[in-house]
Amino acid sequence: MTSNKEFGYNREVFNRLRGLANAWSGITVTDEKFEMYYARLTKRLRFHKLADFKDYLHMVENDAHEFKEFINCITTNVTSFGREQHHFDYLKAFLTQSHHKEFNIWSAGCSSGEEPYSIILNLMPVCEKKGIKLTITATDLDTDVLQKGANGVYPLQAIEKYDLAVKKQFFEKGKGTNNNKCRVKEKYRKLVTFQQLNLMDEWQLSQKYDVIFCRNVLIYFDAPKKQRLARKYWDHLVPEGHLFLGHSETLHKISDDFDSVGKTIYRKRG
């Protein structure tokens, strides 16, 4: 038992907790996450007035609601507006030359919504000019961040990189107690459908997509699961559809079903 901690916590409890997370989500949790688990989950022990992580483990194993809270706590959600701008620049150029009347995008691992809304900020000028109907499906494991995304409320500093014209077109500035916040305008929020999805489950998706954003998601899975995911993404893309990965991810030795057409940009073969 670690003596200098507020709550009793040891490797046995950590191993059982990360085993539960892996069994449900497929996410590989390394030994280095030992302290992260403690730091993130202590608020749940305080909330339930528990003295020991063994008591919390018992609750997670027997209470479906607390299991959901557990997953939300240990899921990593790091995102921002305009991350990896080269992906958006590629899509703008692609759409400018395309003959699409509709364009459907899936943001897999959308976190709190910055990615799908960044897609809208970048693509809407082209879509409006060419009369292209844009729709976005945004999914994540964490129900808390999905609600944040659906609400579309962010601190003003989150969009400080954009010029005034962009801010005025896409956002409403908060007033009173919300004067340091902004909200994505309703007409643009309506373009995004947020829903929970576990990538390890069978996907209940009713369509195929022109583009799938799966950025900084594969890094959490082992090689067999990465291969399985790549095949499923291939299945859910239209012919010659595009898959966008995170800056440290690759399909090299993972899948031969895609052609590399840019930095972490892949196009479906066959």
Score class of each variant (00 low, 15 high):
Met1Tyr: 08
Lys5Trp: 07
Glu6Met: 06
Glu6Val: 10
Glu12Ala: 12
Glu12Trp: 00
Val13Ser: 07
Phe14Trp: 10
Phe14Ser: 05
Asn15Tyr: 00
Leu17Asn: 04
Leu17Asp: 03
Ala23Tyr: 02
Trp24Gly: 13
Ser25Phe: 08
Ile27Ser: 04
Val29Ile: 09
Asp31His: 02
Glu32Val: 09
Lys33Cys: 01
Tyr37Glu: 05
Tyr38Met: 07
Ala39Trp: 00
Ala39Pro: 00
Ala39Ile: 07
Arg40Tyr: 12
Lys43Trp: 01
Leu45Tyr: 01
His48Trp: 10
Leu50Gly: 14
Ala51Phe: 09
Ala51Ile: 12
Asp52Gln: 11
Asp55Gln: 14
Leu57Cys: 12
His58Arg: 14
His58Asp: 09
His58Leu: 08
His58Met: 10
Val60Ile: 13
Val60Pro: 03
Lys68Asp: 13
Glu69Leu: 14
Thr75Arg: 11
Thr75Asp: 04
Asn77His: 12
Val78Thr: 13
Val78Ser: 09
Val78Phe: 10
Ser80Leu: 11
Ser80Asp: 08
Glu84Thr: 14
Gln85Glu: 15
Leu91Ser: 13
Ala93Pro: 04
Ala93Asn: 14
Phe94His: 15
Leu95Asp: 05
Thr96Asp: 12
Lys101Glu: 06
Glu102Asp: 09
Glu102Leu: 00
Phe103Leu: 10
Asn104Leu: 11
Cys110Phe: 03
Ser111Tyr: 05
Ser111Asn: 11
Ser112Cys: 08
Glu114Leu: 00
Glu114Pro: 01
Ser118Asn: 05
Ile120Glu: 04
Ile120Tyr: 03
Ile120Phe: 01
Leu121Cys: 06
Leu121Tyr: 02
Asn122Lys: 11
Leu123Lys: 03
Val126Leu: 01
Cys127Leu: 14
Gly131His: 01
Lys133Asn: 11
Leu134Met: 02
Thr135Ala: 12
Ala138Val: 06
Asp140Cys: 10
Val145Gly: 07
Gln147Phe: 00
Lys148His: 09
Tyr154Gln: 02
Tyr154Val: 05
Pro155Gly: 04
Leu156Asp: 06
Ala158His: 04
Lys161Asp: 09
Asp163Pro: 05
Ala165Arg: 11
Val166Asp: 02
Gln169Val: 06
Phe170Ser: 11
Phe171Arg: 01
Glu172Gln: 12
Lys173Trp: 00
Lys173Ser: 08
Lys173Asn: 07
Asn178Gln: 14
Asn179Pro: 01
Asn180Thr: 15
Lys181Val: 03
Lys181Ser: 13
Lys181Gly: 01
Cys182Gly: 02
Arg183Pro: 00
Arg183Asn: 00
Lys185Tyr: 00
Glu186Lys: 13
Lys187Cys: 09
Lys187Asn: 14
Tyr188Leu: 11
Tyr188Met: 15
Ser206Val: 06
Lys208Tyr: 02
Asp210Glu: 08
Phe213Gln: 02
Phe213Thr: 03
Arg215Met: 15
Ile219Lys: 01
Ala223Thr: 15
Lys226Tyr: 07
Gln227Leu: 04
Gln227Ala: 15
Leu229Ile: 14
Arg231Tyr: 07
His236Lys: 12
Val238Ala: 05
Gly241Lys: 09
Gly241Asp: 06
His242Pro: 03
Leu243Pro: 06
Thr250Phe: 06
Thr250Val: 06
Thr250Ile: 10
Ile254Cys: 03
Ser255Phe: 00
Ser255Ile: 04
Asp256Cys: 05
Phe258Ser: 07
Gly262Asn: 02
Tyr266Asp: 09
Arg267Asn: 04
Arg269Ile: 02
Gly270Arg: 07
